[in-house]
Design a protein around this nucleic acid. Structure first.
Lengths: 346, 346
DNA sequence: TTCCGTTGTGTAATCGATTACAACCGGATA
DNA sequence: TATCCGGTTGTAATCGATTACACAACGGAA
């Protein structure tokens, strides 16, 4: 009953040509006469044929998929980026595999599995913490598939990346707060080893100094981008004698955690303290108070990363490794979105 | 230089056995003697061999991947579910392909492409709106791969699903509000054609009646699960003469939109109106005010859906189509999480 | 008329792993 | 001693599409 799916041979039979011709008609239409092309197209319609990807990939010595490694799938920050990556990659005929490195980290080796280039034709890394794995692979001269970093990156390599100008974002935030008259500005950091954390902290520190403000180490709070860590920072803030009157948070989620924890202790933003976030995730606009934050064009980041990767794959195929591509760093501009969570120091 | 990856033949050579034995040692260790097994294992280590999935899939007549269709990847509600699906599927050796039906809907036919069973060995649908596509496929007797619905489902078929007790969730919400003394309770609906919308609306309507409260059609606001639609509902609410004193929203996001829009107009929750959401997404706990909402165990939903699908795939393979599995509906209990956004009518 | 280049098509090898089948071995049984 | 059996292993066919190579047909140039 459930006869197997139509194969290329069935199409060939129906069109009265050889399988080679069918294959050519489908993947190199220009190498086939107009007439045969039409006949094949008709035969495909009639038989309901679709190529068997396993067979094609085997023959072409490729995997047909692009793997995207995300630090944490459950983080909404990544959803939109993933969505736009998928939107740009799928039309090129690749499958998009999304893997959560937090989970993969559990089973040792699973990440390596993805890095090895027989799993994927290309890689998009949203997780800069893979630095060690990458270096190790390179040292062992293991072949890595073409790859592009998005959002995060690795400093001392020339691996291509797409990211925003994180330092500038931080500067904008601090400048905004200083402009409102704040003289005591604090900062909640992301995870310590993270490049985003250091870039934003650097920008913030520089601008604080540039504005002639006091930069105190105990006003730089530790965090890890999560709401919980923002809340923890709030508790430390509450316990301080000399508190900053404004806080710049390295992620929107930490800002929410911070604001919500203060709220639980009866303090309000921006009345008691101004807060700026980073990312401009969807909810920022609807939080109470609406969050002033640094906007990252997440759809552009995703799309560009995908396009760069596709270009790399092509280049690799053509063996013409264009150095400018191979190590291009696309740094997108950021923008400060001013909403309700900041106000002039009264 | 870049010699191609080691093949099974290389391992066989290194171990001094045939490729058949290597293959068996790897996928059916019990069919091979202890000694050879060790020798093969060593040879695999030495050569750095990993199977070529395209070749394996071709031979096994499978695709090696599970496709998950999501209505909207950018919606944080789905991230956690995806994450737990991936966590349960990956160890079984399948790739997880995530596709956004909103995007796919753009290019006609792309969804069909996924539904056809030469793209995936199994399907998890988080989008009940595919009902038409599914029916069409069935009518055309097109072979569909094993599939499981998660969260949403299709009413008049016996396709298996995992979901929560949506009606009960709605009843809990209404009961809670009624218990707080609210006599005028409104509801913001999800998209009209959606099964979740109707289940929740039904539960809400029934319980409103059961509590002996007035059920007014103009207190059932249209919406589409998005924050924007929640905000739109708020504007309509503001313009009403007789307003509900409590609102039950069919999604957390709509609740946020509703609350935030009221806030912009100078009204506060729960002082001026109580609000209950549905989903209990991560931010609910940290919203200001923290949102009272109906909790959906998203990790369990994802894990169960994955397990059911894997079981189905096995059964299919074994040709033993267990009816109980084929049409099992797993309905998980919901729970009302009471936070700050609801309060007794003063 | 002959030769050459171009275009279009078919034949058959190939990608790499799996598995049906056959063969082999040592020991147990008749 | 002959036969059989269970456990191991090897040989070779197979999955389905792609593509190198060969070849045929045709038009134009010499």
């Amino acid at each position: 009953m459930s006869r197997s799916l139509p194969r290329i041979r069935d199409v060939a039979l129906a069109a009265g040509v050889s399988t080679a011709t069918v294959s050519r008609a489908l993947s190199h239409p220009d190498r086939v006469s107009q007439e045969t092309r039409d006949r094949v197209r008709a035969a495909v319609e009639k038989t309901g044929y679709t190529v068997n990807l396993a067979a094609r990939n085997l023959r072409r010595r490729q995997t047909g998929s692009i793997v995207v490694l995300v630090p944490n799938l459950a983080n909404p920050f990544f959803s939109l980026i993933l969505s736009s990556i998928a939107g740009a990659i799928s039309p090129a005929g690749y499958n998009v595999l999304i893997a959560d490195t937090a989970q993969a980290r559990g089973n040792e080796g699973r990440i390596f599995d993805y890095l090895s280039n027989n799993r994927a034709d290309g890689l998009i890394l949203l997780d800069g913490c893979l630095a060690d794995e990458i270096r190790l692979s390179r040292e062992q001269a293991k072949a890595l598939p073409p790859l592009v970093f998005a959002c995060e990156w690795i400093d001392d390599t020339d691996l291509p990346s797409v990211r925003v100008d994180n330092e500038e974002g931080a500067r904008l935030a601090i400048r905004h707060l200083a402009g409102l008259g704040h003289r005591r500005i604090g900062h909640i950091l992301g995870p310590l080893e993270n490049v985003l954390t250091s870039a934003r902290a650097k920008g913030a520190a520089e601008e604080i100094t540039a504005q002639g403000l006091e930069r105190r180490d105990d006003w730089f709070f530790s965090g890890d981008f999560s709401m919980a860590s923002g809340a923890a920072a709030a508790r430390r803030w509450l316990s301080m004698k000399e508190r900053p009157t404004a806080m710049f948070c390295s992620s929107d989620e930490m800002a929410f955690g911070f604001i919500s924890e203060l709220h639980r202790h009866g303090l309000a933003v921006p009345d008691d303290v101004s807060v700026v976030g980073f990312d401009n995730i969807a909810i920022a606009e609807r939080f109470v108070p609406a969050l002033t934050t640094v906007h990252q064009p997440r759809d552009t980041i995703g799309r560009l990363a995908a396009e760069m990767l596709l270009a790399l794959i092509d280049k690799d195929g053509a063996a013409a490794k264009d150095a400018s591509l191979k190590s291009g760093h696309e740094v997108l501009p950021v923008e400060l979105v001013i909403r309700e969570s900041t106000r002039a120091l009264s």
